[in-house]
Design a protein around this nucleic acid. Sequence first.
DNA 1: CTTTAGCACTCCTGGTATGAGAGTGCTAAG
DNA 2: CTTAGCACTCTCATACCAGGAGTGCTAAAG
Lengths: 369, 369
Amino acid sequence: MAATLTERRLFILKLVVQEFIETATPIASDTLVRKFGLGFSSATVRNDMAALEEIGYLTHLHTSAGRVPTDAGYRFFVENLMDRTSLSMAEQRMIRHQFYQVRGELDQWIQLAGAVLARTAQNASLVTPPRAEQLRFKNLELISIHDTMVLAVLVFHGGIVKQQTFSVDTARAAEELRRSAGRISDQLLDLTMSQVEQLIAQDAQRPTPTFGEFDRGVIDLVIHAMQTFEEQAREQIHSDGLLEMLSQPEFIPSLARDDAERAVERLRRVLEILKSGRGLGQLIPQALASNGVQVIIGGEHGEDEMREYSVVLARYGVGGTVTGVLGVIGPTRMSYPRSISTVRYISSLMSNLLGNLYAGDTRPPFEGE
Amino acid sequence: MAATLTERRLFILKLVVQEFIETATPIASDTLVRKFGLGFSSATVRNDMAALEEIGYLTHLHTSAGRVPTDAGYRFFVENLMDRTSLSMAEQRMIRHQFYQVRGELDQWIQLAGAVLARTAQNASLVTPPRAEQLRFKNLELISIHDTMVLAVLVFHGGIVKQQTFSVDTARAAEELRRSAGRISDQLLDLTMSQVEQLIAQDAQRPTPTFGEFDRGVIDLVIHAMQTFEEQAREQIHSDGLLEMLSQPEFIPSLARDDAERAVERLRRVLEILKSGRGLGQLIPQALASNGVQVIIGGEHGEDEMREYSVVLARYGVGGTVTGVLGVIGPTRMSYPRSISTVRYISSLMSNLLGNLYAGDTRPPFEGE
DNA sequence: CTTTAGCACTCCTGGTATGAGAGTGCTAAG
DNA sequence: CTTAGCACTCTCATACCAGGAGTGCTAAAG
């Protein structure tokens, strides 16, 4: 006979998940009754637990161990049972304050977001820089460093700046560099990479090309920079909070119920995930394409590396154009309420901050000044 | 009776250190004789080992364990016994190639240096960005992002670029921004932070100041940027290679002879050191002040956090002005020959690369164009 | 005086046995 | 449907033991 979900069973499931998240030890029927002064006996709880196990929300590792949530159990908890809370006003204020202190520096914001996520959720964090799908050119400066060395400072829409030095065969006067930069800036304004390529191809065929040989060299550099930037932007993941995650019992051999060996193996696993993004698979593109906070529990997405971890992700950014992803990664036994509210808050905060930066800077390509 | 250092004892010490570095297991007298076909018996080796122990170069953890080098043993090995090698030509070429591929990007070089150090020495690496003791101003651009948002791109000598956005009360025309940036760039050229402060103080007292209110606001921003940059540059340490270090037996519970608990504790320790630089203490300033490769073994510098680790550091940079530090950190049982040759090679490579960038850019302050 | 064979001794290591404790599953009664 | 009671299972910590590794010492040989 199939077990059914009564009110009480839901309640018990909720308690088990919450307790397990807090204590990291399997939950015994007896413990629940004592700790929460339930109006029924441990035997009743045991029966319900058995039912919940049949449904697939709980397990135990061996006969005489307490119950532990399954991935499905966590999922159900997150979707139906969890108390939806927000960060306290005091926390929000403190976090906001930190961000306002590094006013106007995108890189710092990203770094700060990672640190705050980690500290608040007590787990590792990851943040991808906010990216337009396509860079759009805004400005170019050429600054002579010495005789044959030139520094190119490229500015793209959204305040993205990229620097690159290159050497030239013969020395150029500052004025010449300035004129070249001006020419290029004027012509390339608001263009995407492919449009730049198109433009320069067309220009070369004209009877009187706008760009000289030197200009063309510089533009090649620009194209190359845009290309590598877009490429590496897709991959780039900042992560932080390893230490915070390490303080979770899962990573402390004496507290981890399983082999000590595995605690370190686990750690290596996470390090690899955080460093390379491998194992995250489609999660980030997916998060970019959706709204609200995404929760991926354990191996739900089929990546075996991730079986023991959950990820809480949210998109942040301005409109649909300039977006990044940030989130928390930790053992499946993470505090979902806390992670979710933290991720939600930080993502909206980052969105606001970026909003100030980008507002009014979203003119469509090819409309010029 | 004090034990003396005979030729044979030195040889045995060398073998013990090399073997221990390679195998990470205590070395038995018998093992040496068998493995190297020594011309004398294990009893002889035992006697010599006892002597080396009396001198303080070896220990054993318990009666029936093989010998292990002490910090002093490693020190003696590094200074007197080690075969001084270099990276193979093939390795050098491979490394050089990688650096040339990211031509002209300082940040990338730093990142690459960290990665290559880690991979080649199979340990964690640390790199501090190359810094002049004092930034010197080179150029400023002001670029309007939208109505009330302006992006300032600051260029300093040595190709150091810093960007910062700020908001203005009323919209400014592009031309106005350009003129302001031009004025400021002209006046501030080649100045250090304190000189900029001086200049602006003087200017304010003139009957007809060069700088308007807006200019002064921007210059405040410049000063602030220089200040925070110099401050955080002092602290900033890039690190990499956690995974490489984690593959050392010291971090693998089943191979570490001591408690598995400690393997993780160890790891946490290193993470803290790498993240915060705490425990490194005066090592980096010290390395900056000296030439050649520095080797700090175990707790030699009194920092208790570092007792189980060694650091191999070298200064890199141009002349005495623009310098950083890079190096390798790992268990005391690291391969010193390999670490040292790697650090030496990478530091000279980085120095060369920077040399190209900085050559001719070292005019003294206040000499103007 | 140095080297070496031989051997007792120490200490680690891994495996097994054992008992206590924790928690469940089941049964039968309320 | 709930619950008391109890047998059963599995873990965990402890103790114990045998095997092995390597040393330190001694006494003899070079």
